[in-house]
Nucleic acid binder design. Structure first.
Lengths: 175, 175
DNA sequence: TGCAACTGATTGCAAAATGCAATTGGTTTG
DNA sequence: CAAACCAATTGCATTTTGCAATCAGTTGCA
């Protein structure tokens, strides 16, 4: 692991962790998209990451303590990636980032509805979501029924927008 | 200005704005360090940006609407850079980023005291700080006396730490 | 058994970004 | 008039990124 830093400034050190074009995209897909496998991350993100970059970033994020990797018991060569607490606590930052982007950048409606719902939910919703992630990724106990999760709420919002925008063009989901 | 984006996702678009190693460092120095001139940014940041990268990023941030440039009336070849409202509204994100880095990364005490004070001040302090920045950079009216600014508070905290850590080793400030 | 599809990667190579040092044309200061 | 200062720019080596092809092992299915 790299141990020489440009400076001990918290903002600088944070940038050294995810101040590149892909790390935060991968974390976004794991956090909000529920992606856990290499292929899901490779094919699932609309930005189209290359497989060598993905492999490199996953390795790097593991070295930095943001992710862990484990064998999938159901499939000998399948690896399952998990968020650590360090990564889960990025949720408020991602929420703020999404809110900022919605205001200032040419976002598309489908892809920003999740950010809008998360912004409206505010810190209580972020806390609830982080608890869900702890349950999914760290095995922490949870008392939320699966159909009442924050992720399900966000996904339902996304699908409502898609249905409203192009009701006649919908087909079976690609994923 | 580049108009083709990887996706319309707010997080992705935000990353396209400052998802590199230097843009957010420059904005940090302008926001928290009060740097307005090329030389201040070049020599002032401890991370040591190269002049060609600084010139490139300033130009890029202007094209993106985060900064504006004006002639310094007191000095014909001096340019003064100003934050736009778009950049000023990054303050809460930077506050969260600093708070996250303080928890998870090997920050130095001197360089993280500002983040700590900003975190403790919470959203009311961030709002006050953003108002100060609007006054300084956008010419908005302000009713805060100069010695009661958030920036002065943060700077005083920094100097207190430096004084406490190495009281015998202090000299005239280099800058 | 055989074979296609899928798993998490790795390799080779071109293009782009970065880092560093020197330099530019102009301005201000002493 | 010379030294210092100003915002950059240039040239060049190194590093990072992006893309396509490929890899060896695993699984599902006929």
């Amino acid at each position: 692991m790299k141990t020489d830093h440009r400076s001990g400034c918290p903002i600088n050190l944070s940038l050294e962790v995810f101040g590149d074009r892909w790390s935060l995209i991968i974390l976004r897909d794991m956090i909000f998209g529920g992606k856990r496998h290499f292929r899901e991350l490779l094919n699932g993100s609309i930005e189209g990451i290359a497989s060598n970059i993905l492999a490199d970033r996953l390795k790097r994020l593991m070295e930095l303590g943001m992710l862990t990797k484990a064998d999938d018991p159901s499939h000998k060569q399948k690896a399952i990636y998990s968020l650590t607490e360090m990564a889960i606590t990025l949720v408020p930052i991602l929420a703020h980032l999404g809110a900022w982007g919605r205001v200032w950048l040419p976002v598309s409606e489908e892809l920003s509805i999740r950010a809008e719902l998360l912004e409206r939910g505010g810190p209580p919703m972020w806390d609830k979501f982080m608890d869900e992630l702890r349950h999914e990724h760290l095995g922490a106990p949870s008392d939320t029924p699966a159909n009442a999760t924050v992720r399900a709420t966000l996904q339902a919002g996304y699908e409502a927008v898609v249905a409203r925008k192009a009701p006649e063009a919908r087909r079976e989901p690609a994923a």
